[in-house]
Design a protein around this nucleic acid. Structure first.
Lengths: 239, 239
DNA sequence: GCAAAAGTGTTGAAGGTACACCCATGT
DNA sequence: ACATGGGTGTACCTTCAACACTTTTGC
């Protein structure tokens, strides 16, 4: 009994997050993400995660990048698989969704949208902490993505995906504060980051206000916390 | 352009791990797992993870449990999604595999196999640290599953899946030692576990050799570290 | 009594938090 | 000069690893 066709379709969606500075004078950073208004049933007119069907000749990662570009015009700087959702009743037809989460700097968002030949339709950016009711189970999915982001930002270099090549420790701290939702002590933050070795000081400084701040860049040698299934992981020692 | 059929098929596989005591006099615990010998191309005669096709009317978790039972006769005590694999070239035909990892006590393995009406064919148990070359990308997948297990055992109660209802702290420590592959200080291990609140002392004691050890049971109130996408996760505080 | 595991106490190293303080620049 | 963020020093606290020590059983 070898089936070559199946009524089960595979979709790919992406939670792509960026930090946008509030237009208020104090200017705090908040987590925002683009959603797409559905133009078909099911859930017509509701907002949903950008995504699409998995192509027969593309891998999962490639499908995430492609569908994200097609619907929003964006190319993320960081992309990682989040979870596979496949409950029978999550859609009227049988769909298994492989969901990714991604990061992109807000200035890159602007640049990519300006360079896009085909400006995206039906796309709007939402504050992650004030979402409307979304199509399918997408509210739950975004909540889970934000939880993963907060858990990862501490012990890995995911913040890299939200910062330019050169940045100050205050920039990095501000990103961490926005993700974690609490203030961090500048002195202690500095020492922890420097001790972690994830960051390399450069000779450059950022001037413009008060005392110039040293510019840093990321250390490419440091691995992400979760190596993913593709890279080699250490084996169990014989002891 | 709404397709209802697709050439992409969805499979589900499970890395189910248990601890087996070595038949040597010193009797150390080692991580072992069952593999199934393939009876068809591709990779006929090679060993592979137990699994099967996703049914049109079952969720992913249910499919993992069903295919595991059908191929090995086992029902795990702990089951969690690991990763979705979908590279184009990982199989001659296009297959997306949702892979789970699972835990089961070795005495439950024996009981379930004894109770099985249909003893599983073509199943063999392998030492996780000495695997042959497996079908598809299954070697990599198992390496990743073991990495996840080691990372989770420290800060969650996954060891619960490998222990009976009542256990001594020495039992729990032995499980941790086997998974982490190194010895743990009994005194410090005791204090850490007691402080974590994941375990509740009972009035029972295990006698039989030397000084009797107090029996403990797991505290059901304590959540797993990774709540998974299904449960509610905390939202970003407004600060 | 003695061996061996259960369980307690203690110490020093390491890391995190809070906060005082100095430094360098724009205005 | 002075306000402000950059950057350093330090004291305190918690956690953890190492290991000496006491307790309780089987033999």
């Amino acid at each position: 009994m070898t089936r070559t066709e199946s009524g089960i379709r595979v979709a790919v969606s992406t939670v792509i997050l960026t930090l946008r500075r509030h237009p208020t004078p104090d200017g705090r950073l908040t987590v925002v993400l683009p959603l797409v208004r559905r133009t078909r049933e099911p859930h017509e007119f509701l907002w949903a995660l950008p995504g699409g069907w998995l192509g027969e000749d593309e891998g999962l990662d490639a499908a995430a990048s492609r569908t994200l570009a097609e619907t929003t015009g964006l190319s993320p700087s960081y992309l990682e698989q989040l979870y596979a959702f496949g409950d029978v009743d999550r859609s009227p037809t049988r769909v298994v969704s492989i969901v990714y989460w991604a990061l992109l700097r807000s200035d890159e968002v602007d640049a990519q949208l300006a360079a896009a030949v085909d400006p995206p339709e039906n796309v709007l950016w939402f504050d992650a902490s004030a979402l409307p009711t979304l199509a399918f189970d997408h509210n739950q999915i975004i909540t889970y993505a934000l939880w993963r982001l907060r858990n990862k930002v501490g012990y890995s270099r995911v913040a890299h995906g939200l910062l330019p090549e050169l940045f100050t420790l205050a920039d990095l701290r501000e990103v961490n504060e926005a993700i974690l939702g609490r203030r961090l002590d500048p002195a202690n933050f500095r020492r922890q980051v420097e001790a972690s070795g994830t960051v390399i000081p450069t000779d450059g400084h950022r001037t413009g206000s008060h005392r110039p701040a040293r510019l840093y860049r990321y250390n490419g040698d440091v691995e992400l916390a979760d190596p993913g299934p593709l890279r080699a992981a250490p084996t169990i020692p014989a002891n």
